[in-house]
Design a protein around this nucleic acid. Structure first.
Length: 823
DNA sequence: AGTCGTAGCCTTTTT
DNA sequence: GGCTACGACT
């Protein structure tokens, strides 16, 4: 780890480098970008507006450090927000400098900390093979503790306890430091502190870290063991952090620790006193003469895109950067290379309503472009149908599905969109939502792996104890725990002595069998001697566990149709493990589990180019698409109802909306519904206040909020009144230049308001079985009326009818489920 | 021990 | 409207 610090002094400025490569790196940059790439100094803040080319600037900055021989790859640490962003950045740097990029650390905060912790875990009572608890795992643990401490009587719910603990950890607090400031005469506070402390004890006992610990414990490690920290300070000479506006206090502290100068003191003295600081709160004063100055720090961010305050992101980290790092250089990137001016003007107008922000105006030289399209549906299904129709129109106009994205505020909104997309045979892909790794069968499989990799993790062992059913119930589980407790051994080890547990012979046999399977897998995956296992060891071990435990057999024998899908999911999971073996020939079971624990929604984004992407606006950050649909632009959704009560809530919601609209390159659609069903109850929805912040001239309302909206006035009502189908002016080209029909006069009573929504659509589906259709057939559709089949494509359950409806225009329908009948 | 029914909750956003 | 947790029943 001690590379010779062969640092060639930098005399870099534009044009000062003789190498041709340098010119190529700097080609095409505007003056601000150029400064951001070439500035050299201890601290640099790049304020990068949406679409201002910050990724390009960041990658070129890294490439320029490498090319100029100012840094070895191993001296560079670049932190991104998602693994996907990290992968992209690595790829782009590789394109610029090739093999010279090997050895850089480009990763998320969490992955970087896992790497550090795996190396250093033994320093403070963990082992290399620690497990990572995702939020579901910690919720399960906290739930158990809340019950054990009988804390529900004090109004403590698992959810509230979990979120409070998480918030505190993001502030680098632990149960002791919290207790010092808390009102401990309040019994609820006392309970909370007890649970917090117990939770931390349980984690340690299980040799596990939760998400927040990954950062917080690394900071603790650095503060308690300066010698260890110095190793990393010597190593990382250039630290670059993307999305700096979304860092929380713990991440900020981590960066601070890493950029501290290395003291020239005798390293053997420092660590003793640090060890005493068991709460990790201790700050070590910088020593007199540094042996090595602190690493150079570059941060990139945009306070207008700060959308993670709810999970502890502190906007002050970026707004007070210049104070934290005196002498820091600040570069502003304001030219947007992504969107048309209309889209940017809307974005600027919206974000301009946030006070206490540094004014910053994005501009583009791409020209005005198309107007923003607005649409109001009667219901969320109506809205979804609009989106599906527009997607199809754009597709016919030549835009690939992969260049379109649909955003929403809450995950639950995806359901209606999905229903309509399926029915309309539009290929789509949902980012997030019911995540693969959260499925019960996958969690079970992971628990089997963890039981092997980290037997101290009692929760995983408990989880698989009776999966598949072995007749081991709560009573047996308790006696195992009891036995382990009294004999001072782990829960896992208690399984090795079934005869002594005081349970019946049948159950003894079951426990003995489970123990044997786990031992066999351990021998395979973690060979005792130094022999190197084959790359496929994780996949093989997983297959072995699933087969010999009887898990797969139980699913296959089941007559629950869902279990068939579960078997397929497990097959896919084994395939994931094989993939991992291919990409990481030396990867261990711990590496595999780390990767799985840290994958995020934005990560599995690798499109099979050719499907529309659907995701929350949060997930959308950092991405861009030719066409963007922001849906559900309603009060109580965006801004979300819950945000209203929180300080800074509405402003954060506005930033979120801003993030959503600035993802669009060419076409932006804003849509809402007049009524929205939630919890099965239908309620009236109001247009979002953010809509009114967009200058009316920028929006072409296909169907406006009309009289539900106080601002709408006569103009919107007039636009409302068109009948005879929307979205399609003429036959062959139901594209964008829709002609407005003459306004219909007089207001109708509310009862007939539905007249204005000629294409009112419901979510219903039907099983048509093997309905035969051919070109030329006439059909009737529950929502669209009568039409004629143009063509039929696809096979079997995926047969698609292309139908020309008499009034609703051209649609694609999935024959098997569409609500249609042949005439 | 396992299965089935229902009451209650839920929906902010995520590494 | 759907999921989960819990209780009664087999």
């Amino acid at each position: 780890m001690t590379e010779a610090p062969l640092i060639v002094p930098s005399s870099v400025g534009p044009g000062s480098s003789g190498s041709r490569g340098e010119d190529e790196l700097l080609a095409g940059l505007n003056p601000q970008q150029l400064a951001a790439v070439t500035y050299r100094g201890p601290a640099l803040l790049i304020v990068a507006g949406a679409g201002s080319g910050k990724t390009s600037v960041l990658t070129r900055r890294i490439a320029s450090l490498l090319r100029g021989r100012e840094a070895w790859p191993s001296q560079i640490l670049a932190i991104t927000f998602t693994n996907k962003a990290a992968g992209e950045m690595r790829e782009r740097v590789e394109q610029l400098v090739g093999e010279a990029s090997r050895g850089m650390w480009i990763s998320t905060f969490h992955s970087a900390c896992v790497r550090i912790l795996r190396r250093e875990a033994e320093q403070f009572g963990f082992t290399k093979s620690f497990t990572i608890y995702d939020s579901g795992d910690s919720r399960a643990l906290i739930k158990r503790l809340v019950k054990e401490h009988e804390a529900d009587a004090y109004g403590l719910t698992p959810a509230s306890v979990q979120s409070r603990i998480s918030k505190l950890k993001n502030e680098l607090q632990d149960s002791d430091s919290y207790a010092r400031d808390a009102n401990m005469s309040d019994p609820a506070e006392q309970k909370f502190v007890e649970i917090f402390a117990d939770y931390q004890r349980q984690l340690r006992k299980a040799n596990a870290f939760d998400f927040d610990d990954l950062i917080g414990q690394t900071v603790y490690l650095f503060r308690a063991f300066p010698k260890v920290a110095d190793t990393y300070r010597r190593r990382f000479r250039h630290i670059l952090v993307d999305e700096y506006q979304d860092t929380n206090h713990a991440q900020y502290a981590l960066i601070h620790e890493l950029t501290r100068p290395v003291s020239a003191d005798d390293p053997s003295t420092g660590s003793g006193s640090g060890f005493e600081a068991s709460n990790g709160m201790m700050i070590f004063e910088p020593e007199t003469t540094p042996e090595l100055e602190g690493a150079s720090l570059t941060v990139v961010g945009d306070s207008d895109q700060s959308i993670y305050a709810f999970r502890g992101a502190d906007i002050r980290n970026i707004s007070e950067f210049e104070r934290d790092f005196p002498g820091a250089k600040v570069v502003l990137l304001e030219q947007n290379y992504r969107s048309t001016q209309n889209i940017l003007s809307a974005a600027n107008a919206v974000i301009g309503n946030n006070f206490d922000r540094k004014d910053k105006k994005l501009w583009s030289d791409k020209g005005d472009g198309d107007k923003i399209v607005g649409f109001t549906g009667y219901s969320q299904h109506d809205e979804a149908q609009f989106v599906a129709d527009e997607v199809e129109a754009l597709r016919r106009a030549g835009m690939p599905y992969s260049e379109m994205a649909v955003f929403y505020r809450t995950n639950s909104q995806s359901r209606a969109l999905e229903e309509i997309f399926i029915r309309s045979a539009v290929p789509y892909k949902i980012m997030g939502g019911t995540k693969f790794y959260e499925r019960a069968e996958i969690k079970d499989a992971l628990a089997y792996l963890i039981a092997v990799a980290n037997p101290a993790d009692e929760m995983s062992v408990r989880r698989i104890l009776n999966k598949p059913r072995r007749g081991i119930g709560g009573v047996t589980e308790a006696s195992i725990a009891q036995f382990a407790e009294t004999h001072g051994i782990t829960f896992r080890d208690a399984l090795s002595v079934p005869a002594e547990l005081g349970v019946g012979p049948k159950i003894q046999a079951a426990i003995g069998h489970l123990d044997a399977v786990l031992k066999e897998a351990t021998a395979l995956m973690l060979p005792a001697s130094g022999e190197v296992p084959p790359p496929t060891v994780v996949a093989d071990g997983l297959s072995l566990l699933l087969a010999k435990s009887g898990y797969l057999d139980a699913l296959r024998a089941s007559r629950d149709p869902q279990d068939e899908a579960r078997v397929e999911n497990l097959d896919e999971f084994v395939a994931v493990a094989r993939d991992f073996a291919r990409n990481n020939p030396e990867g261990t079971i711990a590496d595999f589990l780390t990767e799985v624990a840290l994958v995020s929604d934005a990560d599995d984004l690798d499109d099979e180019s050719g499907s529309v992407s659907m995701m929350t606006m949060h997930t959308a950050k950092g991405l861009e698409y030719d066409a963007v649909f922001v849906t559900g632009v309603e009060e109580d959704l965006i801004p979300h109802r819950i945000s209203a009560g929180e300080p800074g809530g509405p402003q954060e919601e506005r930033r979120l909306f801003y993030v959503g609209i600035t993802r669009a390159r060419k076409r932006l659609h804003l849509s809402l519904a007049m009524t929205r069903a939630q919890f099965g109850e239908v309620s009236v929805a109001m247009p979002s206040r953010f809509l009114q912040e967009i200058p009316a001239a920028l929006v072409d309302w296909r169907q406006s909020p009309g009289d539900v909206n106080s601002r709408g006035g006569t103009q919107s009502r007039a636009l409302n009144a068109r009948r005879g189908g929307f979205g399609s002016g003429g036959r062959g080209d139901d594209r964008f230049g829709v002609k407005k029909l003459p306004p219909r006069d007089s207001l109708k009573p509310l009862a007939t308001a539905m007249d204005r929504f000629p294409n009112k659509v419901t979510g219903k589906v039907r099983d048509n079985g093997d309905l035969e259709l051919a070109a030329g057939d006439r059909i009737r559709h529950d929502d669209f009326g009568e039409g004629r089949v143009d063509a039929v494509t696809g096979e079997g359950a995926k047969r698609i009818a292309h139908v020309r409806f008499d009034s609703a225009g051209l649609k694609k329908l999935l024959i098997k489920i569409a609500p249609i009948e042949k005439l």
